[in-house]
């Protein structure tokens, strides 16, 4: 967090590439080793290098939420972080939300309530909701509407998304009782 003021010029143009190094990510429970350069964004590492294409790129600037994954359980925008910064971290992507063939209650509720159309924002929506539910941040429909606002759905499935998450909350609640 140094002073971000001032403008850097690139100076001499670099024609050689930044050196790569090995990192380990624990993705969906499995250790994945990866040789990457510092400039590889976590989102691009998942999609291009690890073939985990369920995590989506919708804006690449933290303005849509399609790239949401859980890092150590917390939802984050994977487009705004370097993969190398997460050496050793636990990453959960949409591919790791279901338990084998058994869908997570949020996934099941999304299907039942038709909480998506094109499906492109859906993995981000689901990761976001799962993270919020796990953290106990959702109590009312207003909570859902506000806290899910970081996940844009251009198809406009919002009322169905709210209904799906409410259902998942109830099933979690009944499971806890």
């Amino acid at each position: 967090m140094n002073n971000k003021s001032g403008v850097e010029t690139a100076g001499n143009v670099s024609t050689s590439l930044p050196p790569k190094s090995w990192i380990t990510l624990k993705i969906n429970g499995a250790e994945r080793h990866l040789e990457i350069a510092p400039w590889t964004i976590l989102l691009d590492a998942l999609r291009n290098l690890l073939d985990l294409t369920g995590t989506k790129k919708g804006c690449d600037h933290g303005q849509c939420g399609a790239c949401t994954v859980l890092i150590d359980g917390k939802p984050i925008n994977s487009c705004l972080t370097l993969a190398i910064m997460h050496d050793g971290a636990e990453v959960t992507t949409i591919e790791g939300i279901a338990k084998g063939d058994a869908l997570h209650p949020v996934q099941q509720a999304f299907i039942e309530h038709d909480a998506f159309q094109c499906g492109y924002c859906t993995p981000g929506q689901i990761c976001s909701a799962v993270g919020l539910l796990n953290a106990g941040k959702l109590r009312t429909p207003d909570d859902i509407r506000e806290l899910m606002s970081g996940n844009i759905c251009r198809c406009g499935a919002y009322p169905n998304i709210v209904a799906a998450i409410e259902q998942a909350m109830q099933s979690e609640g009944s499971a806890a009782q």
Binding site: T53, L103, Y120
Partner: peptide
């Protein structure tokens, strides 16, 4: 009727144009 492609979309299995590696 729930979407026949629903499961693919909620699990990340549905592949879009930039996702064929």
């Amino acid at each position: 009727t729930s979407r026949v492609d629903g499961r693919a979309k909620v699990t990340g299995a549905a592949k879009y144009a930039a996702e064929y590696n």
